[in-house]
Design a protein around this nucleic acid. Structure first.
Lengths: 197, 197
DNA sequence: ATTTAAAGTGAGACTGTGTATCAATTGATA
DNA sequence: TATCAATTGATACACAGTCTCACTTTAAAT
């Protein structure tokens, strides 16, 4: 068997918690329910909820980003070998955007939510760290003359992810009109060009 | 009078709270004291503490960054007019680094602290938003053909601040050896060059 | 100077958070 | 089946953050 029965059950509990949390978010709004309510709806004890997630926010943000992180990692594994570091990231985001089609609704919902609630945004930032190291590792070997403690991969990873996030933020600020995907691509091209005047 | 008596007192209370908080941080460590303890040490009621800061973390991070933000804003006001957007930021960080001398101890202490405690890091991120808009506004007019909802100033501001932070982070990760200031300058030069391979 | 309105404070109550303990249950192993 | 380790729910506890209310202090106006 791929997983022990014990692991399966843990996975089930975890998923039911995330499911209950996102469901309550939609029906009640972020301030309309407590960690207690999530546990109740998921059919577990309150203590058990906190064994899986350290907070209500953690459960929600996990529901948002867990899949996206694994998708990103998988995509990076199949990136063409001859691309430069920057071009690898441009390629990456083009792929990720295409894979989710032209319905920007999900991005909008998530972005708006993160924008409205600082506590969620703070939690999301912790995921950002995971993204950064994943991206950094995936592009490091693409640099010439890579040294022991080379900071370049980390710098580029942070900058690119931040620029993408900023582009989406500004898109939302401007009323979510127009094409996000091209805005993101323009932003990355702007980065590649060294932010010229 | 510059400030009403009422404003003076509020300022005093605020400062005494920040002072008590940072003092307790040094003597007890972040987990060694509560918001209650801060209020007690500052000589105010618990409720009053929460009227000034929403959390223990907020009081601490404010103590760290409030001055730095005003310093940055002031520096940006006297930036040479003929510099390009990117060069303005390079100029800015050179100035800020010089102004605090070669003792990188403060940077190290702050960075290490933020690194150790996610709750502090999350709070610090909220300040980042303030930095970003300040920088963005200060460099916007330096772009050619600036349009209505131009996202370029925001993109560059975010990217530059993030890159600087990442450089300092990696400097700490590597044991805080070597020259931070030149690492930061190299990082910004790397950004200006478009993150080449 | 006295009065009046506004602003700020401290105390206490209340809900929710996150941690620790412990007995009971369930899965893994022999 | 018997045993051991892992997981769970219940309970207790300290702290966080919000709210109300009575009280004090400041600002302003006669």
């Amino acid at each position: 068997m791929a997983q022990s029965l014990r692991e399966q059950k843990k996975q089930q509990v975890r998923e039911s918690i995330v499911e209950a949390a996102t469901s309550l978010l939609k029906s009640k709004g972020l301030d309309g329910f407590s960690a207690n309510d999530i546990a109740l709806k998921a059919g577990v004890g309150r203590a058990t909820f906190f064994r899986y997630f350290e907070s209500k926010e953690a459960a929600l943000v996990t529901g948002f980003y867990e899949d996206q992180l694994t998708a990103m990692v998988k995509a990076l594994e199949i990136a063409p070998a001859d691309l430069s570091p920057v071009d690898t990231l441009i390629w990456l985001f083009k792929l990720l955007e295409e894979s989710q089609g032209p319905d920007n609704i999900e991005i909008l919902k998530q972005g708006t939510l993160l924008r409205s609630f600082p506590s969620l945004r703070a939690k999301a930032m912790e995921f950002q760290v995971g993204y950064e190291s994943a991206v950094s590792n995936a592009i490091a070997h693409r640099f010439n003359d890579l040294r022991e403690n080379d900071i370049r991969p980390g710098l580029l990873a942070t900058a690119a992810l931040t620029v993408v996030r900023s582009a989406i933020d500004q898109w939302i600020d401007q009323g979510a009109e127009g094409d996000v995907q091209s805005m993101v691509q323009d932003a990355l091209a702007f980065l590649k060009a060294g932010f010229p005047a």
